[in-house]
Structure formats: C-alpha cells, structure tokens
C-alpha cells in the first residue's frame, strides 16, 4: 500500500483543484435551491455569468500552465515528453476556445467587449461563440486524442498498458454506433435539407466521432490506472479518463435533453456537470506535476538532492502554505 502521509507532505495542485471544484459546485447547488424556493433567477444567472466563467477560464489557464511545466521536465526522446507537448497544445486550444465561448461572447461586466462596443453586437458575439465551440470541440478533442495516444504508446512500450475487458468493447461499440448514427443523420440532412446546414453546426460534426475515439483511449487509460494502482502518475492519466467519461455523459445528457427524454428538473444536474469535467481535465497535469514535486521534495528531505524543486511553488504555496 502507498503511504498516504508521504503523498500529502507537499502542497498539492491536485488538492487545490479539487477544493476549488467542490466550492464552485456547492455554491451553484446552494443558489439553485435559492432559485427553486424563491423563484429569483438573478443570483443563479450571476453565478453562471461571473464565477462560472472565471472558474472555467482560470482552470483552463492553470491546466495549460501545468501541462507546460510537465512537458518541460522531459529531455529524453523516448519518454512521455511528446505526449505532454501535444496535450499542452490541446489545452492551449481549450483555453482559447473557452475565452471566446465562455467570456467574450457573453455580455457581462467582466467582458472587455462590453466596454469597447457602444452597443452589444450579437452577430459578432455569435461568431465568437461558434469559433470558441470549434476550438473547444473538434480541435481540442483531435489534438488531445493524439496526445493520449502518444501517452498510451509509451505505456505499451514499458509494459504497463492495461488490457481491455470484454465488456469494455460493449461501451466502445455503443459509442461507435452513436457516432455512426450522428453521421448518418448529418448525411441525411445534408442530402435532403442543405438549407439547414450552418457553419456552426458543420464545425461540430466531428465531435461525436472524436469522442468515441477519446472514449476508447479513456477506457485504456482507466484500465492502465486500475492495473497500476493509485500512484500519482497513474492518477494523472486516470484523471484524463474520468474527464472523458464525464464529457461523454454530458454529451449523452444533451442528446437526451434535445429529444425530450431528459426534461427539467432532472436535467438541471447537467448545468453543474461542466465544472466537474473541466476540473477533471485540470487534475491530469496537476497529478503529474505533484508527482515531480514530491519526488524532488523526498530527495531533498532525504538529503540526496542538493537543490530545490524545479516546479514553481508560487500558486499552491501561497494558497496552502
């Protein structure tokens, strides 16, 4: 068994992200009850418009920074370096996309466009939202799929890749069938009613295909994590797996809502789901960076390693120090 006291001896980015996520969701649920009881939507609206936006953009920036920190540790060619570089790129697209989609296209007081435009330009805001969705959707997912593939490839090389169980294929098969169903719907509409095709819709077409690929990777990552036990490196990849599962659940939830199978108030749970999977994506690089810091800290404490940590302590050190 891993010694827990060893694992928690260093200020932890992963713990910080978990605490932040719990706070964010708890506040949301509390305000949700206020809305249900009083009928006053203003508080909940402000929650989604301000802390909600700041939370997502902040976590996007944090996960990009953590990925870059993780990537910069690698110099060896035969390592996880290329995987972390590609994942950093994916996180860069996620940040850019969420800045457009969550921040700049919403008319709030924290949006600089609110002050720059004399009148709110809904058309440009819609375009920003479309490009943001493209960056956080197919672009992010494609680059992330490549990064996770490189990571899985390295685990295979060192003999630590988990094995798929028979029922895993059922899940992957279901995701594949769903992706094919979406593709057939798209083709049917493209052939019969081309006037319905908008750029915003076309740009999100590959989402379900990519999600099916990511789900396959997530299952492999999950199996690898379970087979390895719960070390920090394993948890880093496990967090990506959890994030992808949650993304898939959210996607299915949206589909069910769109077809009327998941009506309000049951579907309100999806409003807060977003915050959980954004945090899960940030936990991946956080566990990796925590692992490096713990390794360095233990070497320093053991008087073997003469220098301080190469990982900046600025953020979590201030918050937990």
């Amino acid at each position: 068994m891993t010694d827990i006291s060893m694992r928690t001896s260093v200020h932890s980015y992963s713990r910080f992200i978990l605490v932040l996520m719990i706070l964010q969701v708890s506040v949301g649920i509390a305000l949700h009850f206020v809305w249900v009881l009083t009928g006053n939507w203003a508080w909940l609206s402000a929650y989604f418009g301000y802390p909600g936006t700041l939370y997502i953009v902040f976590l996007d920036a944090l996960k990009l920074w953590l990925c870059i920190v993780a990537w910069k540790q690698f110099r060896e060619k035969k390592s996880l370096g290329s995987a972390w570089l590609t994942i950093s790129l994916a996180m860069g697209f996620a940040l850019a996309g969420d800045v457009l989609k969550q921040w700049l296209c919403v008319n709030t007081y924290i949006n600089p466009l609110h002050y720059l435009w004399p009148v709110w330009n809904a058309s440009v805001a819609h375009d920003l939202q479309v490009w943001g969705s493209t960056l956080t959707g197919p672009v992010f997912m494609a680059v992330l799929a490549l990064g996770l593939f490189l990571g899985l490839q390295h685990y295979r090389k060192i003999g630590m890749l988990g094995r798929l169980r028979s029922y895993d294929f059922v899940l992957v098969g279901a995701a594949g069938i769903y992706a094919l169903y979406v593709l057939s719907t798209v083709v049917r509409i493209a052939l019969n009613k081309p006037s319905l095709l908008g750029i915003d819709w076309v740009l999100t077409w590959p989402n379900d295909m990519l999600l099916a690929v990511l789900l396959l990777e997530a299952i492999l990552l999950f199996r690898t994590t379970v087979d390895m036990g719960q070390g920090y490196i394993a948890l880093a990849w496990g967090a990506f797996a959890v994030a992808i599962f949650l993304t898939s659940v959210e996607s299915v939830g949206q589909w069910l809502t769109a077809y009327g199978y998941f009506p309000y108030p049951e579907n309100a749970v999806m409003w807060y789901f977003w915050y959980v999977w954004v945090a899960a994506f940030a936990l991946g690089p956080a566990y990796q960076v925590d692992a490096i810091r713990i390794a360095e800290s233990r070497a320093v404490n053991g008087r073997w390693f003469g220098r301080g940590s190469s990982i900046p302590h600025a953020l979590s050190g201030r918050l937990f120090g």
Binding site: M1, T2, D3, M6, R7, M160, T225, D227, M228, G229, Q230, G231, Y232, I233, A234, A291, I294, A295, R298
Partner: peptide, 9 residues
C-alpha cells in the same frame, strides 16, 4: 508505489 501505484511497483 507513490508514483507508479502499488500494483505497478
């Protein structure tokens, strides 16, 4: 085990 996980170690 701290890094890899108990089973992997």
């Amino acid at each position: 085990a701290i890094y890899l996980g108990a089973r992997a170690a």
